[in-house]
Design a protein around this nucleic acid. Sequence first.
DNA 1: GTGCCCCAGTTTGTCGAACA
DNA 2: TGTTCGACAAACTGGGGCAC
Length: 292
Amino acid sequence: MAPIAVDDIPEGEEWGYQLKWDGVRILALVEHGKVTLMSRKLLDKTALYPEITECLRSGFQQRLLLDGEVIYFDPEQGRPVFQKVLQRERSRVAAAQSPRLTYVLFDLLIDGEEDLRTLPYEQRHARLQELMAKQPGLLLSELFRDGPRLWEWAQERGWEGIVIKRLSAPYREGKKHKDWLKKKIALTVQASSPGIILREGRVASLVVLGEDDAYIGRVSLGLTEPLRRQLLSFAQQHPGPPRWSPSPAAGRKEQIQWLSLPLQLTVTFLEWSQDGMMRHPKLLHLEGLKPE
DNA sequence: GTGCCCCAGTTTGTCGAACA
DNA sequence: TGTTCGACAAACTGGGGCAC
């Protein structure tokens, strides 16, 4: 069950609110003393998170199917840091040599012989809370009743956003529902683009420079086909000298078309990565293209 | 050194169904 | 007939691993 992005936070008795934990979604099946961790695409992640597997295995005897998020909580920043989970996912570094991850649970789908998926979310969460009272090694995603206040709290502390859940909703597959919603907190930057990245003759993305002309990433989300064609035409009409070498396209099947007239951009993104790059940038607004 | 793959999350584009 | 909505596929980002 995946939350759907919304602009407005619905309010009322029927809704509950949770913090959006910035990590990797994981389903956990506990059965006959054996634990299996699965990604959203049902890939086996058991070996990747041994500390979580061990915690579940030692904590529970009965058959369980749990839904939650694997996160790294940075005590200094007071919030989850997604990059640390990605490092574990991608580097295949032994878990003992990387930071300890935490499993934050928000749903209980099977408890013993009982399939809870048809129960209202509020009841499933209450059952989960009861279950976790006996297992201190895991974290429960708390359910709040004041959405706007939680949103304000999350904004002030730089969290990823909030998740809004219909308390009466059963568990449904995928996004075929309007029962789990999410509202994400985005940062915005005024930037410029001195070059267009081309792949096989098509505009793939834009080089993005921050306010101090430092490279802060590339943006492709927000580029529609008509805009890509317009950019290509603009680049052919206004070629400029290379700005620096090696280019951000080095090592890829890409070329950069540098511009004599930089484009002005407004870009929204989730957060700054540790090396000063934008995470999940999206083009909001573009200025500097002459009308065709 | 190069090129490809991995993977999650997100958006865009396309197609078909439902509805006015 | 035109519009809206939903489902699905494809494209895109990041950095490390691996084969050549």
